[in-house]
């Protein structure tokens, strides 16, 4: 009884939902990247590494330039660069896409940590100055609305960017010519090819897009939500984004819902001071939930038909 009261109290705490949205959008960005990449037929579990590279680049550039926008752009490019490697290895060389992804993740961890030690002589970068951080927007008046104000109008700029990208990617995938072609290539590359679509270009573009989005997420993590770079600071978020994407059935909106569930998990753990339950046990919840969903209790999740299959022209 007391527990129920505690839970209810927790659920009406704005901070809970504020953090949920922020953590959710952090996962959403790489998840959107994953959606695009996998919709085009390339399995991408390298969002983790791309994000980490982005985080590193953001902090390194912020240290030098002190400008959050330049830092973010470089972070996006750095994520894209990692994606290029993944794209070449898995599209051009038709390597196993999962193994390539694992290699990217290890590589990204190694190279960022190595450079971090090297550049700073093992000291680590200083925390990024407030002026070099991606700003939080306090939207006047609206942020004073009780409960909803802090949740929706008191967030980092990237939260709004992320929500915009959510709509944009959803629209792009399901309403535009480009989206139609991406989905066609991911479902049936032969059919797309016979219809005159360049399968390789679409796949390269999609994988690189996933890297750009992951790089942006890295910047959001390193110079938005926090102001530091730590070795391996993405801490598995890329993998969670992957799970969210599958959970969300390869759709942007579905992925966002899943990201919010993971975000809520994070947030409940952080806000559980009113709840008398072990944080670590609470932390397990989103993962158990995902497992249950994947086990088919809620519905089977079917990937794009050609997901993970390299395309060889002329094959049937």
């Amino acid at each position: 009884m007391q527990l129920i009261g505690q839970i209810l109290h927790l659920l009406i705490t704005p901070a809970l939902w504020q953090t949920t949205l922020e953590s959710g959008v952090l996962l959403l960005l790489p998840a959107l990247g994953g959606v695009i990449s996998e919709r085009s037929g390339v399995v991408n579990i390298a969002m983790e590494g791309m994000m980490l590279t982005g985080a590193f680049a953001a902090v390194a550039v912020a240290e030098v330039t002190g400008n959050p926008w330049i830092s973010t752009l470089v972070a996006i490019a750095a994520g894209g660069l990692m994606a290029v490697i993944h794209a070449v290895v898995s599209i051009r060389f038709r390597a196993d896409q999962i193994i390539s992804g694992v290699a990217i993740n290890i590589f990204a961890f190694g190279i960022t940590a190595f450079l971090n030690s090297k550049i700073t002589n093992f000291q680590g970068f200083n925390p990024v100055k407030p002026s070099a951080q991606l700003p939080y927007l306090h939207i006047p008046i609206l942020d004073k609305i009780p409960f909803f104000g802090p949740i929706f109008f008191d967030q980092n700029i990237i939260v709004y960017v992320g929500l915009f990208l959510l709509v944009a990617v959803q629209f792009m995938l399901f309403r535009t010519r480009l989206g139609l072609r991406i989905r066609a290539v991911g479902e049936h590359p032969q059919a797309a090819d016979t219809a005159g679509i360049n399968v390789y270009s679409i796949r390269y573009g999609s994988v690189i897009a996933s890297g750009l989005l992951s790089g942006l997420a890295g910047a959001f993590l390193a110079i938005g939500i926090t102001n530091v770079f730590n070795d391996g600071m993405t801490d598995g978020r890329g993998y969670i984004a992957l799970a969210a994407m599958i959970f969300g059935k390869w759709t942007p909106i579905g992925s966002f819902v899943a990201c919010l569930i993971f975000g809520l998990g994070t947030s409940i753990v952080a806000n559980n001071s009113t709840l008398n339950v072990s944080r670590d046990l609470l932390s397990m919840l989103p993962y158990i939930l995902t497992l249950v969903v994947l086990a088919g209790l809620v519905g089977k999740s079917i990937p794009p038909a050609a997901d993970g299959q390299p395309y060889t022209p002329g094959s049937e």
Partner: peptide
């Protein structure tokens, strides 16, 4: 940060 936000919220 999340823990602090929670505390600030309280």
């Amino acid at each position: 940060k999340a823990v602090a936000n929670s505390q600030i919220g309280l």
